[in-house]
Amino acid sequence: MTIDAWLQAATADAERRGLSDLKPILETLAKATAALRAADFNSAAGPQAEADARRDRTS
């Protein structure tokens, strides 16, 4: 799930639950999640999974 899609869903759910004060906090969390996913120990994971899938298809 992309962070944008997650944030949209999370914000809508928080509002449905009457927790509209959560919105700015969820936006902060979205930034932290983006930073986590961008860390190089994780940024390698996406391309690696893709490469593994390609290798599996050709083997």
């Binding site: 997650w6 999370a10 928080a14 959560l22 969820l26 999640t33 986590l36 996913r37 994780n42």
Partner: peptide, 14 residues
């Protein structure tokens, strides 16, 4: 409440 929205995949990344 913020913690209830964290995705499992991001916990594993952490």
């Amino acid at each position: 409440e913020m913690g209830r929205y964290i995705m499992a995949e991001d916990y594993v990344r952490a």
